[in-house]
Design a protein around this nucleic acid. Structure first.
Lengths: 364, 364
DNA sequence: GCCACGGATTCTATCGTTATAGACTGCTCG
DNA sequence: CGAGCAGTCTATAACGATAGAATCCGTGGC
């Protein structure tokens, strides 16, 4: 049925190993031999059996990317970037959706599916510090996000506290005094929600604004719908608000929707800023100010770290990398005269860690 | 290093084949033996080597999904659905982005990467009827979309002409007489643009509206930015418009943006309807009317067809499946009193083909 | 003319499974 | 009481490639 190296070798009148050598670009082959082999390959339509090769070489040149859900734009765009970065290194990406299921996330780390790829880039959403033991795996692993710190794996995260603080301060700098925050998780100590909320509070302090619990709107899931609902609750409760910091763009877009449907002018009456800088943010009405967490850099770095582990180039202690993030001002904070370029404000970085050549902060 | 069946067999005091039998659920094994093997597996932390298994069984239980770009919400949501459908059948999905590159699309069909998975679900965007020869491949293939008809492969497509006609008629039924269409591809005879444009013209005819070339705004790429630009061109040219049919939601959302920034009331002055019913449509301001092409069904059907080919359950002639689509009226066409349910209008289906039990239209 | 040399090629073991065929139990049954 | 049979389990050959050692062979040194 399928044509194998055996067949090619027979037709070219050489040994199977010579075919292998040709296929793998081994240099010491007489041009005439190479030509014969290539003719045979072309004529027979031979394609190498990657499975057999993988068995022998113990490499599949595939990596797994595990994310909660591709229909969330942030993760779709992250996946896009990861796939591109991987491809640039000759790797194919297998995507695993955990769909907000704790079991699914555990499976990603322990399940049988795991061992067909060379490594895993994992963005957990349910697992937390208490699950840190699960991350002690025997394959190359790069963790993304803020759910788990200190896992025995390389980690690419973002500057949540600083970035959230910068976003909030951006609102304060516009003279907003009643800044609501949407998307908090009551009582949670870990993860993006907690960190970004802390940044929000830091900013209030720095801007000499009081912290008012009324201005905190919870939202368990960070979807547009929950953002819309949370914003609606604030407005319907008659709480005075002139600025909104949504903990991600989906929430912010939902909030814009709620504001729009209640005929509240943005940014006139309420200024809004989100977080993630998804593609949508540039095309909503009004366009949405946001924080770019450095998605491309996150993807590229994650793939690089993983590749270094896979190839064994890096065997040292686990690294933590924090790409630069920046505030991007658009219409929803009144930043951009129509048609003008977006205003970008680099987030002040904390500085105790060494800086890599390309501006990444790295800590071992 | 890695623990193999060999090791397990040694510890359990059985043959390697017996371990294999246990792992694969072969029924005739004495409970005591099974227990010993399982103890050994647990104790040694044995995990089956999928690569070796694949080499032997010639199955990888992976399929490839090739789409243009995950950062386009339609494809991200499609990927989400495909992954879920695949997972329900025990398959993992490897994603290939073609990034609008003709070469990349050719690669997907012919490239060496291809043969690590059991089959391919391919949504081409660049290849056309002239490339039909490329689709004559020796692995299971399901084609999505409207670029290529008649390829030697199963095909899941949508009812473009009818659905576009229904969308346009929806605008006409609101009394709109100057209905623009955004996203056409000049001179193109093939693909979604051509089909949906034809549906638009059919609708005009049926509604007794003249076809006015001024109302046709081209847009090569179907992005929000191009939709915004196209809408902007129409408005800035002073062309009278009271309805817009955008050939997909991204274009429509871009158009909404352009309308908003020019202070044109939607749906008061201009009613807008898109196509695809991406998640965004429910959360834009105003919410966007659209056509649901049956994305879930497309995904599920595509995976089903592919699995049938992979397992050899289906060996007959290639099938074409067209899921049902329907118009979904939202604020942008003034359909929904706030808070009420969305209005859904089933698209009239052409009827020369037999109907499957669950409402799919199938033609061999 | 013989041998060392190094490039070109072949030989053979191996990667970790599954598949096929057969061996070995006990039991039933004519 | 031996054949037949279902139930268990084992031996061994693939699956299609790669890796390292072994072999072949034309050339140049002496």
């Amino acid at each position: 049925m399928a044509v194998t190296m055996q067949d090619v070798a027979a037709r070219a009148g050489v040994s199977i190993k010579t075919v292998s050598n040709v296929v793998n670009g081994y240099p010491h082959i007489r041009p005439a031999t190479r030509a014969r082999v290539e003719e045979a390959i072309g004529h027979l339509g031979y394609r190498i059996n990657e499975t057999a090769r993988s068995l022998r070489t113990r490499r599949t040149d595939m990596i797994t990317l595990a994310v909660p859900e591709l229909s969330l734009p942030y993760f779709a765009e992250l996946a896009d970037s990861v796939i591109q970065a991987a491809e640039a290194r000759g790797l194919t990406v297998l995507i695993e959706q955990t769909s907000h299921g704790r079991d699914r996330e555990v499976d990603v780390l322990t399940g049988k599916r795991r061992n067909m790829t060379d490594g895993l880039i994992f963005s957990p959403l349910e697992l937390g510090p208490e699950d840190i033991g699960l991350f002690d795996v025997d394959f190359p692993l790069v963790v993304l996000g803020e759910r788990v710190f200190g896992a025995p794996a390389d980690h690419v995260t973002m500057n949540n506290v600083e970035a959230a603080k910068a976003a909030t301060l951006h609102l304060a700098s516009l003279g907003r005094r009643r800044i609501a925050v949407i998307g908090g998780h009551e009582g949670e100590q870990v993860g993006s929600a907690a960190l970004r909320t802390r940044g929000y509070r830091d900013a209030l302090k720095e801007a000499n604004l009081p912290y008012d619990p009324e201005l905190v709107a919870e939202a368990g899931l960070w979807h547009r719908s929950t953002g819309s609902e949370a914003m609606g609750r604030l407005l319907d409760a008659g709480i005075e608000v002139d600025g909104v910091f949504a903990l991600n763009d989906a929430l912010a877009l939902g909030a814009l929707h709620a504001l729009h449907s209640r005929r509240v002018d943005v940014p006139g009456q309420v200024a809004v800023i989100g977080f993630d800088d998804v593609d949508d943010a540039r095309y909503s009405s009004p366009t949405l100010s946001s924080v770019d967490p450095g998605r491309e850099q996150i993807a590229r770095t994650a793939v690089d770290l993983l590749v270094d582990r896979i190839t064994g180039k890096e065997t040292g202690p686990f690294r933590r990398v924090i790409p630069d993030s920046r505030v991007i001002g658009r219409e929803s904070t009144g930043d951009v005269p129509e048609g003008a370029d977006e205003k970008q404000v680099a987030v002040q970085q904390g500085g105790e860690e060494p800086i890599e050549p390309d501006g990444l902060r790295v800590s071992a």
